[in-house]
Every structure is written in structure tokens, then in C-alpha cells.
Design a protein around this nucleic acid. Structure first.
Length: 115
DNA sequence: GCAGTGACGGATA
DNA sequence: GTATCCGCCACTG
């Protein structure tokens, strides 16, 4: 459970980090899901923006965050283009053509898991 | 201060 | 199912 979500002292990107860090291995979520969980579903771009700053933080499993299509849109921001896919496959997530095949199965909804 | 841009999402055609 | 458009908020030039 994230207690800091309701803590307005933390910035938006900080809250995003908290959620992303709680994503279990072998699961993945979407920017929209996080944005929605944070009460800013209209600002899904902000989640992406937050992740942009997150790629510098080794504690943030950014590879588990993809867009609503399960597409690895941010793979280009990783150290290597294949790193994101490798990490996902390493966790049991099947990635094909830069997108998560069984995305629906591995989808991790913070609203349900953290509610 | 204005305009362009971005790891997106949803609605519409 | 694919293609476009718009909104969203923050950052950069």
C-alpha cells in the first residue's frame, strides 16, 4: 500500500516512481493506469514525462511500464534498444515486435492491487 | 510570454 | 481495426 499517494507534499513524478517500484516482477502496467491511479488520467503524458526522468533512477523498473497497447514505446530511452525487451522476457513476459503479446495477462492494475 | 514538443489516452470518423 | 484529432501539464528554446 502506498501511503504517500495522498501525500501532496510529494511531486507527481515522485508518486509515479512509488507506484512503478511496486510493480511485481513478471507484470506490467500502462501509463494511463498509473495516471488514473494518481487521479490524473487526463495527464497520461505526464506519466511518460515522469518516466523520462525515471530512466536515470536504477530503482525504477521502467521496463514494466508501457503504453495502453502494451507497446514498448520507451525502449529507445533505455541504455540499449533491446534492454527493455530482454528485461521483460527475463521476467516471463513475452514480447514480440516490441510489444507485450500477453499484455492483458500480465497487466498490473494499481487500482486493484493497491486499492 | 509564445510556440513546439513529448515513454499517452480517449473519442471520433 | 486503422487513422486522425484533441486534451492534458510541464519543459525547453
Amino acid at each position: 500500500m502506498i501511503t504517500s499517494i495522498n501525500d501532496n507534499n510529494k511531486d507527481f513524478f515522485q508518486m509515479v516512481f512509488e507506484v512503478v517500484k511496486l510493480i511485481p516482477s513478471g507484470r506490467a502496467t500502462s501509463y494511463g493506469a498509473i495516471a488514473n491511479y494518481l487521479g490524473a488520467k487526463r495527464s497520461s503524458r505526464m506519466v511518460g514525462w515522469a518516466m523520462n526522468t525515471a530512466h536515470s533512477n536504477p530503482e525504477i523498473p521502467a521496463h514494466r511500464v508501457v503504453n495502453r497497447n502494451g507497446l514498448l514505446t520507451g525502449k529507445m530511452h533505455f541504455q540499449t534498444l533491446t534492454l527493455m525487451q530482454e528485461l521483460l522476457e527475463k521476467e516471463g513476459i513475452i514480447v514480440k515486435d516490441d510489444k507485450i503479446v500477453n499484455f492483458k495477462a500480465v497487466f498490473w492494475n494499481p487500482m486493484e492491487e493497491l486499492a
